[in-house]
């Protein structure tokens, strides 16, 4: 098991390094003056040009530049944002926890509800229940993330006036303690709800399919012939075996959840890394864009390690084979 973990960690580190290398190579493809591209659509003073040329070793051969870049990234030096006039690392450190809060809560709710709906939809003896859930899930799955957010804003903020439309807190807040937390929470309700709806539909789809597949297996027939009750079969055999493929999907859908942040944070003007990415693409602030891409890659890789470990722990076949090897 320890070897299994270590192997996955090593792979993850390699994967991250190759993401950085890939990004570096892509950056070489930008047409025109690299310093201008790095700075964005802003005038470049000669002094800055000289210091950047020296810092990024622009006159050195490719491999040496790549090495220098990797060393910088590994030291947490992701460059300087000309748009925000701050180091990229500081901006990310400020904004990432917010995105993590939004995506993490929505993702967790979505998975739990999705698994429940998927099981219910697959094992229900009533065809109409399955049809109703499946139809809802399919419609939810087809709606663009940001459009769901917009519809919720139209209904709950503009029309009913229950919840704030955007931001992550009021401009001036007099509340403190629990009141402050509750105030913050009202700003989170709509974005988190949007997240949850989308994540739920994704998970429910996979879970339903997975449960249906499990129900066809021989061991379910055996369990039924042993006289186990419907409940025992579902909880003891079906759920555990059906969750395995869904877990793999969950790992990768964390990336999609992080990607969803880009659009969702823009709809709600939520100051996380997603809206940072969009602002930076608009301002052509390349250093920040690269920083966000690397950060999101890191978070997805970490999530995939977690999922791999979970998978190995849940699936005895992997546990045993890795112990033997």
């Amino acid at each position: 098991m320890l070897r299994h973990v270590a192997g996955h960690m090593a792979q993850a580190v390699l994967l991250l390094l190759s993401v950085v290398v890939l990004i570096f190579c892509l950056l070489q493809l930008i047409p025109g003056d690299p310093i201008q591209a790095m700075v964005g659509d802003m005038p470049v003073p000669p002094a800055l040009r000289a210091s950047l040329e020296q810092r990024f070793q622009l006159n050195e051969p490719f491999l040496q530049r790549l090495y220098g870049y990797l060393v910088n990234v590994l030291h947490g030096d992701l460059g300087y944002s000309m748009n925000y006039r701050r180091p990229v690392f500081d901006i990310l450190a400020e904004r990432f926890p917010r995105t993590l809060l939004l995506a993490g809560v929505g993702y967790t709710f979505g998975i739990l509800i999705g698994i429940a709906i998927g099981i219910q939809s697959a094992v229900t003896p009533h065809r109409s229940v399955d049809r109703a859930w499946s139809s809802l899930v399919l419609i939810g799955y087809a709606m663009p993330t940001f459009w769901v957010g917009q519809l919720l804003v139209i209904v709950f903020s503009i029309h009913l006036g229950w919840l704030p439309t955007q931001g992550m807190g009021p401009m001036v807040s007099r509340a403190s303690g629990i009141d402050w937390l509750l105030e913050r929470a009202t700003y989170l309700v709509l974005p988190v709800a949007t997240y949850t709806i989308l994540e739920t539909t994704r998970v429910a789809r996979f879970m339903r399919a997975s449960v249906l597949e499990t129900l066809e297996q021989g061991y379910i027939v055996t369990a039924r012939q042993k006289g186990l009750s419907r409940r025992e079969i579902i909880m003891g055999h079906v759920v555990r075996n059906s969750i395995l493929p869904v877990i793999t999907v969950m790992g990768y859908s964390f990336g999609t959840a992080m990607g969803g942040a880009v659009l969702l944070e823009t709809v709600f003007s939520y100051p996380g890394v997603g809206s940072l990415m969009v602002e930076s693409v608009r301002a052509r602030d390349t250093q920040v864009i690269v920083g966000v891409v690397i950060l999101i890659a890191c978070s997805v890789v970490v999530m995939n390690i977690v999922v791999d470990l979970l998978y190995a722990w849940l699936d005895p076949r992997i546990r045993v084979s890795s112990a033997q090897s």
């Binding site: 390699l14 994967l15 190759s18 993401v19 890939l22 990004i23 892509l26 950056l27 493809l29 930008i30 990768y252 990336g255 999609t256 992080m258 990607g259 969803g260 880009v262 659009l263 990415m277 969009v278 693409v281 052509r284 390349t286 864009i289 966000v292 891409v293 999101i296 890659a297 997805v300 890789v301 995939n304």
Partner: peptide
């Protein structure tokens, strides 16, 4: 699979935004 993972590590919209901002 390493190459696939490399691309799959990044969410689709991020890859698209990145390439649109570059190209």
């Amino acid at each position: 699979l390493r190459v696939t993972d490399l691309f799959h590590t990044l969410p689709a919209i991020i890859i698209v935004l990145f390439s649109v901002s570059l190209m």
